[in-house]
């Protein structure tokens, strides 16, 4: 167990579940944050699942990978031992949030952003993983920046069961991350100031997308000021359609769009990477 000096205690923003620590930060950011790790033991060359857990104060919201209007994406700068790597943070589906006259893609309450750490091929002994997390939390009165230093100490060895609880939370977080599904075929027609989506399921047994919502991962293509909701489409088979107003900052020609489809009826959101033929 670590022994905490009074000043170290003062610096802790949240008591963590496992081995990770959070250091006090110059900016509170109206959120409690911590680092979850699926295993306190690593094996050289192998990945370890992890997640940044954020809990925004009531009334405040944080932002998705595409924050929409205003806002700022949550980012982390890792300080890793030589040869170690960390994947980008993954983001579960957001909700549309209108504050004043700005529409953004946001999170309320708790959100887990999973990622993977990979140990170097020659990793050994005790290693310390450190990351500087920065985010923005806003309410209808204004915005507050947040910074925190997240860290965890790992040891070489067989999988440890001491982080079982975190392991479950992290796996659950991964299960909510949008994933590609070859079942769906998408076409986008750019005309009259809007993007017209047609989505076709290759199987008639596919879950309905009626009522589902489209969120663009790419910024400045779709105008966030109205929700993009999917309706039943035309033609034989399971077809769906939606239209989204073009962002005023979109280029003349839109040749690709990365977006997600979110619905309570789906096990997890669908990730679609459309490219113009």
């Amino acid at each position: 167990m670590n022994s905490f000096t009074p000043s170290a205690l003062a610096g802790l923003a949240l008591l963590p579940l496992g081995y990770s620590q959070v250091a006090g930060s110059p900016h509170e950011g109206n959120a409690k944050v911590d680092l979850l790790i699926a295993d306190s033991h690593y094996q050289a060359g192998k990945p370890i699942r992890a997640a940044v857990r954020m809990s925004y104060d009531p009334g405040y919201h944080g932002y998705w990978i595409n924050p929409g209007e205003g806002g700022m994406k949550t980012e982390v700068k890792w300080n890793l031992p030589d040869g170690w790597s960390a994947s980008e943070l993954s983001f579960p589906a957001p909700q549309r949030e209108v504050t004043g006259n700005l529409s953004s893609y946001a999170y309320h309450g708790e959100v887990l952003l999973p990622f993977e750490l990979t140990a170097s091929a020659d990793a050994s002994g005790e290693v310390r993983i450190v990351g500087e997390l920065s985010w923005l939390a806003c309410n209808d009165k204004g915005c507050v920046p947040g910074d925190a230093v997240l860290s965890v100490t790992l040891h070489s060895g067989a999988s440890s069961t001491s982080t079982q609880q975190e392991h479950k939370l992290i796996d659950l977080a991964w299960s909510q991350i949008p994933e590609k599904d070859p079942l769906w075929e998408v076409n986008i027609d750019d005309r009259d100031g809007s993007l017209h989506f047609t989505i076709h399921a290759k199987s008639d047994n596919a879950t309905t997308l009626e009522g589902a919502e489209i969120f663009p991962i790419d910024e400045q293509i779709i105008d966030p000021s109205s929700a993009v909701l999917i309706e039943i489409g035309d033609g034989v088979g399971k077809n769906f359609k939606a239209s989204a107003k073009r962002s005023e900052y979109a280029p003349k020609e839109i040749t690709s769009l990365k977006f997600i489809v979110k619905s309570d009826k789906l096990k997890r959101p669908i990730l679609i990477e459309w490219k113009k033929k």
Binding site: G70, G100, N101, C138, D140, Q220, S247
Partner: peptide, 12 residues
């Protein structure tokens, strides 16, 4: 000549 401005919303 035209870029998307970033920042905190102006509250009218």
């Amino acid at each position: 000549a035209k870029t998307e401005p970033y920042g905190c919303g102006v509250k009218y």
